[in-house]
Simulated assay, not measured.
Amino acid sequence: MGDTVPRELISLADDEGNSVTVRIQGLSPTWSAGLDAEIVVRTPFVSGRVYLALYVAKLESWGVALNRLDGGEDVAWMEMNRGPSLSVHLTGERDCPEVVVEDESMSMVTVRVPLVPPDDWIEDHRRRLDQVMTHWVPMLSS
């Protein structure tokens, strides 16, 4: 990774042009314990983005979600929080994995993105999480 600042906590994409990314924009200027981020959805049909506030507990809960996914369970990340949520269904409505992004609190829009990630995607996301935690968490106040 070198001197590159880790920006992509989640990056799920397939060869069909479907992707869901959680991109860290930087330290929040209004909240010393948080990071400004966004969920970005891109498909040939629909694209959009929604603001996301991240803090240590949310990052840690993504690690728990990855463990559950590795065990064959579907997960809902940030389901009970204000703001958007992201769910990963290992077998979605089209018999392939899908990511569901919901923004009930603001736009009231839900987007389902079917995609087939590479075989090593969970391990890749564990590395991403570790890099994000190592770089960003020391800069956050408790």
Rank of each mutant, 00 (worst) to 15 (best):
M1G: 15
G2C: 03
D3C: 13
D3G: 06
P6E: 09
E8W: 02
E8D: 15
E8A: 01
A13V: 09
D15P: 06
D15Y: 11
D15R: 15
G17C: 07
N18S: 09
V20G: 06
V20Q: 13
T21A: 09
T21Q: 10
R23W: 01
I24C: 03
Q25V: 05
Q25P: 08
S28Q: 04
P29V: 09
P29N: 04
T30F: 14
W31R: 12
A33E: 11
E38H: 12
V40F: 05
V41M: 13
R42F: 02
P44S: 06
F45K: 06
G48E: 00
G48K: 02
R49W: 10
Y51G: 12
Y51I: 04
L52F: 12
A53D: 13
Y55E: 15
A57H: 15
A57T: 11
L59V: 01
L59F: 12
W62P: 03
W62I: 00
G63Y: 10
G63T: 04
G63F: 11
A65Y: 05
N67H: 11
N67S: 14
N67C: 00
R68M: 08
D70V: 07
G72I: 05
G72K: 13
V75C: 10
V75T: 14
V75E: 13
A76H: 00
W77E: 10
M78Q: 08
E79N: 01
M80Y: 09
N81A: 10
R82D: 06
R82S: 14
L86H: 08
H89P: 07
L90N: 04
T91P: 02
R94C: 12
R94I: 04
P97A: 11
E98R: 12
V100C: 07
V100L: 12
V100Y: 11
V100E: 03
D103I: 03
D103L: 02
E104H: 05
T110Q: 15
L115Y: 05
V116G: 09
P117I: 10
P117C: 02
D119V: 06
D120K: 05
D120L: 10
I122F: 10
I122H: 13
E123M: 14
D124L: 07
D124N: 14
H125C: 03
R126V: 08
R127C: 05
R127M: 02
R128P: 15
L129D: 08
L129N: 11
L129T: 00
D130N: 07
D130E: 10
D130C: 09
W136F: 04
W136H: 11
V137D: 00
P138V: 03
